[in-house]
Design a protein around this nucleic acid. Structure first.
Lengths: 226, 226
DNA sequence: CGTTAGGTTGACTGAAGTCAATCGGTGTGG
DNA sequence: CCACACCGATTGACTTCAGTCAACCTAACG
């Protein structure tokens, strides 16, 4: 389906040294980190390991952790230009995994932290990312606490559409299982809910792409945080 | 039940200028903030307002927000020595409220932030608090996503016991409604779950105090984060 | 002494989880 | 090239856990 894996040197040449596809957000803070290619399902950094801050260049990554009794929780999805891994200090550290074939730039946490100590602008940027992730987590939490499956999926679709470019057509590379583990639903329930939304004429699905036919109606399902 | 409200001046004398009941964590970063008394249920800072960072001196505070459809979510409980309010940047800002009659020291956010810009130690402390709250939220999130009522309550009791001094006897000043809004349960379910735990000999209740009779058995319910 | 708020319990309901079967696409080995 | 296995998605049937509605009780307070 996708081109064969390329080695890190080629990618560095393509994404790192030469003209980049888009400006790197991490690159603005520290020396440009090397980009690597990860196959779908590959581990970008292990659970419990928090040595890396990562920026997705192409594709999509998820952060996930497995609880003591074997259940999996997906804590976030990250598309091109988004940064993850900085919040995973100590307890609750997440594994980073590639959702689909992806290119990810990794950067040692330590180099960012020492940079933040001497550069107030960098410190502010890190702080902003962390509080943003905090706010996102809090919003999801209130949804998980009280929302119905319909509300969860509606909110999820709107969030993804906004983050992946603001189009009404969104390609969701993750599986129903991923979405379920993100929203606290069984994959069957995710499937059923998509069917309901399709029957009500709110969305259309084309494989793994979703077209939001009536975003404003979806918004009425998705609970406003406050 | 409690002594009459005292004015802020008396409190400043008792908690601020004179010998304190315990060392202030905020006081280590900025000029000692004045402590104020709040009656049970009183608002410490409004939802949407994020101008204050607060440290609980006596009693207990909760952070809560009301969603668009009128449901309430409690985001955290904070006992003596704990700090809240710094994470409530922008979206998702929470109201801070006194759970019971409490003494709380408030400090302008701006003064902390400007302090952090010149004092790397202060910046590190703020960063540590924020990541700790992040980790706590993530743990609660995985509980809300997949846990049963029994698991939620067991986890809650162990968390509170640990944070309120590590004793097996815990005084929980918050109502069943508060606990329910914190864990995503109806207050009736909280009540029923306490009854189940009592019948199984895991806890004993004495009014609003809970005695953990077999903490290790509770731990087996409470899902380990990883 | 009446009122009110919080807690507990019961009966019922409903939404989502579980188990299971089917279908389609993809990659692999013969 | 084809048969097969496998994975993910979908749908159905059934079950279960927690929410809802309601009643009752207690303690606190005016």
């Amino acid at each position: 389906m996708l081109s064969a894996p390329r080695n890190a040197d080629e990618l560095s040449a393509e994404f790192g040294v030469g003209p980049r596809l888009r400006p790197s957000r991490l690159g603005g803070l520290v020396a440009l980190p090397p980009a690597s290619w990860f196959a779908a399902g590959a581990t970008i950094c292990d659970q419990g390991e928090n040595a890396y801050v990562c920026e997705v260049i192409e594709g999509m990554a998820r952060t996930a952790q497995v609880t003591g009794d074997g259940r999996r929780v997906v804590n976030g999805f990250f598309g091109p230009g988004e940064v993850f891994g900085f919040a995973a200090l100590g307890v609750g550290a997440c594994a980073g995994e590639a959702v689909c074939d992806s290119v990810v730039a990794r950067c040692a946490r330590g180099s960012l932290e020492s940079r933040a100590l001497v550069d107030p602008g960098a410190a502010r940027q890190l702080w902003a990312w962390l509080t943003q992730e905090n706010a996102r987590t809090a919003a999801r939490l209130s949804l998980l606490a009280h929302g119905s499956a319909l509300e969860k999926i509606a909110h999820f679709l709107l969030e993804m559409a906004e983050r992946l470019g603001g189009k009404t057509r969104v390609v969701l590379p993750m599986s129903r299982y991923d979405i379920g583990d993100y929203l606290g639903l069984a994959s069957e329930t995710v499937s059923r809910t998509f069917t309901v939304l399709r029957e009500r004429g709110l969305v259309a699905t084309e494989g793994r792409a979703v077209v939001l036919l009536r975003p404003e109606a979806l918004g009425r399902y998705g609970v406003a945080p406050n």
